[in-house]
Design a protein around this nucleic acid. Structure first.
Length: 116
DNA sequence: TGTTTGACTTATG
DNA sequence: ACATAAGCCAAAC
């Protein structure tokens, strides 16, 4: 599996992803597809994932608030500990059960609609 | 330079 | 409901 080295270059797309993710309110979660759609690249949900992998090098990017459309914490394996992502979410008041956000539908934060 | 691989999503059988 | 395919695009090899 390829791993992004360091997005020190332009990576405007990456930077845009970071800004949107930073706007996600605590206790809320969003999805890759929603962010990708908000950025214009509707079918580029994967790129959002790439950006979040690279977000390790950034600061203030709550990547743990971004999950897939099922509310599943698919990215938890990219954290130091397998339950780190879940812990962060629970600290913010998000219920997580078996790596999946409970009431995801209710906590979902869509930038295209909330951010107008 | 070309192939492979995803922190995805939607469509189809 | 589960399995597979396809679209997407940048990075690693």
């Amino acid at each position: 599996m390829p791993v992004p080295a360091a997005p020190d270059k332009k990576a405007n797309f990456f930077q845009d992803v970071y800004e949107v993710v930073k706007l996600i309110p605590p206790g809320r979660v969003s999805s890759y597809g929603a962010i990708a759609a908000y950025l214009g690249s509707k079918g580029s949900a994967r790129m959002v994932g790439w950006a979040l992998i690279a977000s390790h090098a950034q600061h203030g990017v709550p990547a743990h608030r971004v999950v897939n459309r099922n509310g599943l914490l698919t990215g938890r394996q990219h954290y130091d500990a397998p339950n780190a992502m879940q812990e962060y979410l629970e600290q913010e008041g998000v219920e997580v059960k078996d790596g999946q956000v409970v009431e995801f539908k209710r906590l979902f934060w869509d930038p295209a609609k909330e951010l107008l």
